[in-house]
């Protein structure tokens, strides 16, 4: 699972959960897969990103030094930051880990790179 995907995941489908975001990420095993840097892609993704989730993902992925805690105003003009965002969001592949609902503590496992967001019928 790429961290760009993590940015969108919530546990809001669980009955009673109000926000369910950001999910608490744990990484037990990850891979780095190089991909072509495209600054236009990162700029297009920016409005869809929740910086708090991006920053917490960076901390978990041990890249907190690369990403500022608060979103700077002119990200699009900062080529180096765009490149670091590209690395964080598209090149880190989470193989094993988990996502935890911040409200209920429900754990969604990540196995072989696939987050399992399935809920039981009694949870929805």
């Amino acid at each position: 699972m790429k961290l760009s995907t993590y940015n969108f995941l919530t546990s809001m489908a669980i009955k009673g959960v109000k926000v369910g975001y950001p999910l608490k990420l744990t990484i037990n095993k990850k891979d780095v897969i190089e991909s072509e840097f495209n600054p236009v892609f990162i700029e297009r993704l920016l409005p869809k990103l929740d910086w708090s989730a991006v920053y917490s993902a960076a901390q978990v992925a041990e890249l907190a030094d690369d990403i500022p805690a608060a979103q700077p105003d002119n990200v699009a003009e900062d080529e180096q930051l765009l490149q670091r965002l590209h690395h964080l969001l598209f090149e880190i592949d989470v193989l094993e880990g988990q996502l935890e609902c911040p409200e209920t503590g429900r754990v969604f496992p990540i196995t072989d790179g696939i987050p399992n967001m399935l809920l039981n019928e009694d949870e929805v």
């Binding site: 790429k2 809001m12 489908a13 369910g20 975001y21 929740d50 598209f90 696939i114 987050p115």
Partner: peptide, 19 residues
């Protein structure tokens, strides 16, 4: 392939909000 992910989820359970 770059930039592609698969999530195990029930399409009918995809929550409102972020998606």
């Amino acid at each position: 392939l770059p930039n592609v992910d698969c999530i195990r989820a029930d399409v009918l359970q995809v929550p409102n909000g972020k998606w």
